[in-house]
Simulated scan of single mutants.
Amino acid sequence: MTARPYVLLSAAMSVDGYLDDTSPDRLRLSNAEDFDRVDQVRAESDAILIGANTMRLDNPRLLVNSEERRAKRVADGKPAYPLKVTITASGDLSADLKFWHFGGAKLVITVDSAVEKVRTTLGGLADVVSVGPQMGWGLVLDELGRRGVERLMVEGGGTIHTQLMAQDLADEVHLAIAPLLVGQPKAARFLGAADFPGGSTARMRVLEVRPIGDVVLIRYAPKERS
Rank of each mutant, 00 (worst) to 15 (best):
L83K: 03
L152K: 03
A75E: 15
L97E: 00
A89N: 12
V215A: 05
L141D: 07
T120F: 05
T110N: 08
G17Q: 11
S113H: 15
G17V: 10
K117D: 05
P24W: 01
V129K: 11
P5Y: 10
L49E: 02
Y6K: 13
T88R: 01
D39A: 05
G157C: 03
D112I: 13
V115G: 13
V7N: 06
E143D: 09
R69H: 13
D34P: 05
G123N: 10
R26N: 08
S226Y: 11
R210V: 01
E67S: 15
A47Q: 11
L29E: 07
I177M: 02
G124W: 02
D96M: 03
E155L: 02
E150R: 15
S14M: 01
D46V: 10
R37M: 00
K72W: 12
D20P: 04
G157D: 01
E44Q: 15
G123L: 11
P79I: 09
D92M: 09
L152E: 00
G158V: 04
G132Y: 06
M165E: 07
N59E: 00
V131D: 09
S23F: 04
Q40K: 10
D58E: 13
P179T: 06
I48H: 04
R26S: 11
R42W: 07
V215N: 15
V15S: 07
D34W: 04
A193Q: 09
R69K: 15
G183C: 07
L141G: 06
D46I: 10
S23V: 01
R189N: 05
P222A: 05
K72H: 13
G17T: 10
R26P: 00
V41L: 15
V140N: 06
L191S: 11
D16M: 12
L141K: 01
D168R: 10
S14L: 00
L62W: 07
D195Q: 14
L217Y: 05
L93Y: 03
L122P: 10
T120Q: 15
T120G: 12
L9N: 07
E150V: 04
P211K: 10
V154M: 02
S23A: 15
V173A: 13
V74M: 14
R70D: 08
S130W: 08
L57T: 12
D34Q: 03
L144A: 11
S66V: 07
A3Y: 06
